[in-house]
């Protein structure tokens, strides 16, 4: 049962990264790719009706994590206290950046909120990337299952690391490239004309960076935590995951070149999804590794809620998520195709 919840929570988080990833990426590129007020309204219009729903995946995943693995929720949220609170502030800023911008037709007002939105999006990507790096590298868990990481110490991955060290910064940089590309591919799908051409150029520049940085981060990950390969050795079928990652990268390359915008974006979704599945597969059954004594790691066994809670939860979770996916199909099907100005109230 713990394994089922591990898979569900991992899928929800992966769903969050794939979905909110494209609007975060669009945000990071907002100031660079979209120059005029019209173009910026197109970018915002491309994510306007969906970004809020995408972000709900984070809340729903957080709530589900809280329910299924209360100790992991408690330990990691308090241990990553400072970066997590910064994430919360950035989520506040980003949301008001998107939502308050349109209320005034004033150039300064709009420039201000464009800047808030874009900068907050970029910093969120940095923090999320570093967070993933922290989970892979491990944290200084104590015998009481708790820890506290400062923002940084000496930038080394020793037993007492900070939230930022060379490895997690690398992860943040990789994440910027991947998520920015994801956002660019989404915006290409939703726009046309000059903006579309500029985004293609950006995507073409980002792709080699994504490939090189992904390779570097995988190599660094195994260097930081050699145990990551244990599950792949024990279950060789797992090697299908990196094969899919590579296939998705090739897909992004081929489909971008041939102008098949939808397929290129979907390849990017598969790329992100398989990267995260690969990480989750490598960590299992560990949820949060210890950077010191490995027996102190939080696992699905010592961090799960009571057996009764886990079995009861499966019912309402499945029902709720089935309905939620229904809403997503509805909203995305109402919102398919290219965005044009004045086609909805967001513009």
């Amino acid at each position: 049962m713990e394994t089922v919840w591990f898979v569900l929570v991992a899928l929800m988080l992966a769903g969050y990264v794939v979905l909110d990833g494209f609007d975060l990426g669009a945000g990071a590129l907002h100031l660079i790719a979209a120059r005029t007020d019209e173009e910026r309204r197109l970018v915002l219009g491309s994510i306007g009706p969906v970004w809020d729903g995408n972000e709900v995946w984070l809340l729903a995943a957080g709530g589900t994590l809280f329910y299924a693995f209360p100790l992991l929720y408690a330990s990691s949220f308090s241990g990553f206290y400072l970066p997590l609170n910064m994430v919360l502030w950035l989520l506040v800023l980003r949301a008001i950046g998107i939502e308050f911008r349109a209320h005034l037709a004033n150039g300064l007002w709009r420039d201000f909120f464009d800047g808030v939105f874009s900068l907050a999006s970029l910093l969120l990507i940095v923090l999320f990337g570093a967070a993933l790096g922290n989970v892979i590298r491990g944290v200084p868990l104590g015998a009481d299952h708790y820890f506290f990481v400062p923002l940084w110490t000496d930038f080394r991955t020793g037993p007492q690391p900070g939230a930022l060290d060379w490895y997690t910064v690398l992860c943040a940089v990789v994440t910027i490239a991947i998520i920015a590309q994801h956002g660019a591919l989404y915006l290409i799908l939703k726009t046309s004309g000059e903006l579309n051409r500029r985004l293609r150029t950006i995507a073409n520049i980002l792709l080699p960076a994504v490939v090189a940085l992904t390779a570097a981060s995988l190599w660094a990950s195994v260097g930081v935590r050699a145990e990551l390969l244990d599950n792949y050795r024990a279950t060789p079928a797992g090697w299908i995951i990196p094969v899919l990652v590579a296939a998705a990268l090739i897909g992004i390359f081929r489909f971008t070149r041939s102008g098949r915008e939808r397929e290129a974006f979907l390849s990017s979704c598969v790329f992100i999804l398989t990267m995260l599945v690969g990480a989750a597969f490598a960590l299992y059954p560990v949820l949060l590794p210890s950077s010191g004594d490995p027996t102190l790691s939080l696992t699905i066994h010592n961090a799960a809620a009571g057996a009764r809670s886990l079995s009861v939860g499966l019912g309402w979770w499945s029902a709720g998520m089935a309905v939620a996916i229904g809403y997503f199909v509805l909203v995305y099907s109402l919102f398919k195709g290219k965005v044009h100005l004045h086609s909805n109230g967001h513009l």
């Binding site: 729903g53 709900v56 809340l59 729903a60 957080g62 709530g63 589900t64 809280f66 329910y67 693995f69 209360p70 100790l71 929720y73 408690a74 330990s75 990691s76 949220f77 308090s78 206290y81 997590l84 609170n85 299952h145 708790y146 809620a305 009571g306 009764r308 809670s309 009861v312 939860g313 309402w316 979770w317 709720g320 998520m321 309905v323 939620a324 809403y327 997503f328």
Partner: peptide, 30 residues
């Protein structure tokens, strides 16, 4: 709950997170 009330969350998550997660899944998506 997790950042500032970790011990409370650890002990009661198996109960109190049921309505909180249900809020996300049933209300926020809607």
């Amino acid at each position: 709950f997790g950042t500032n009330w970790a011990k409370f969350s650890e002990l009661t998550g198996g109960v109190i997170a049921q309505p909180l997660a249900m809020e996300g899944v049933f209300s926020f998506f809607l």
